[in-house]
Simulated assay, not measured.
Amino acid sequence: MGESIYQAYEDEIECLQEEIKILEQKAKETQIYSQEFLKTMHLQKEMFDVQNPESWKYSNTDLEAQIEQTESQIALLTQLTGIGFSQHTVTTVSEGNNKTKQCRLSGCSHSLHFELEFELTEIQTEKDVITTVTDLNIILELNDVYNLSTFISRTEERKNLLMFFRTFSIFAKWYEYRQVTFRHFKEKYPQVVKLPEGSSGEYMVLKCSKLTGIELKIFWKILVSEEGVVTPVLDLLTKIPTEALYFDTGKIMDSAPNSFRCILRLHGIEAAIECLIGLCKEP
């Protein structure tokens, strides 16, 4: 009796194991079928998107949004740095594991245009890719600024693109500010202010209408060191007829440059120039 019960249990266990195997096999077949079904549906969807232009409007909308976002970011970057790019071409030359990119870049900083020709060499190492500037040529529309030309030559030797962009943007900002300031006073006081070299020149002349023959020259230079430090320097030069010197007993004309520098430190550039013009023009 006991052996028959054990035999019945063993038979039932074997049946259960057989059912489990059958279920596992069906589960595998179902999983494979589901994967194939999903893959087929995905391919059909892609074919539908290609054949149905109505579906394109969603991707186009996303693309337009990305373009607008990129343009706004570029506009913000240009506003912050004062540098904008108008043209960029790249030619890649491969030599074994190394790649050389020959680049040409055009743009402007404030009102000054520039062109760059440089080479980027990429060297593949075991851990990373090292990129270095191996050649640099800078072309500017300004050729008569000695300090800037010296800095550009130094930058080309060092092949330092970052220093060029940083220094040139600061220089261009001061250059444009000087132009705007000279133009402003020329338009405001046309009878007093003269610009022999135009608004892009380095000096302006104030003709004193109260006393004939007396002129004040305001020199405004923008110095650039070899290390890229930009420094605006303003100075005053006086011109007075010899016969008028006898009446200048208080040596006012001799002390004028120092007085002008003091006003600059206390009130700034525009206020200092305005003060000198007030001395020259008719009341």
Rank of each mutant, 00 (worst) to 15 (best):
F151T: 02
M163F: 02
V230F: 05
T81Q: 00
D135K: 11
S106T: 00
Q79S: 10
T61Q: 15
I22H: 14
I218G: 10
I22E: 13
G228W: 06
I252K: 13
L120Q: 07
I218D: 14
I277G: 10
P196A: 05
Q79G: 14
Q191F: 08
H42R: 10
M253K: 03
K221P: 01
G96I: 05
G228C: 07
K251N: 15
S55M: 09
E274T: 04
L23E: 15
K101C: 06
E122M: 04
I139Q: 12
L120G: 06
E122V: 01
L206V: 02
N160T: 03
D248K: 03
Q17G: 14
T61N: 12
Q7M: 07
W174Q: 08
I273V: 02
K21V: 03
A8L: 11
E126W: 03
Q17W: 08
H110T: 01
L223N: 11
E202W: 01
S111W: 02
E270R: 06
T125Y: 07
T81F: 04
R158S: 14
I32R: 07
H267M: 04
F185A: 03
D128T: 07
R154E: 15
I139N: 13
E119N: 13
F37S: 09
V145H: 11
L142F: 01
M204L: 15
R158P: 10
L76G: 05
I252P: 15
M204E: 11
C262Y: 07
E115L: 05
I222L: 00
I269C: 08
L206K: 03
R265I: 02
E18T: 15
L245V: 08
E71S: 08
E176Q: 06
I218N: 05
N52M: 10
L38H: 09
E71M: 08
L43P: 00
L63I: 10
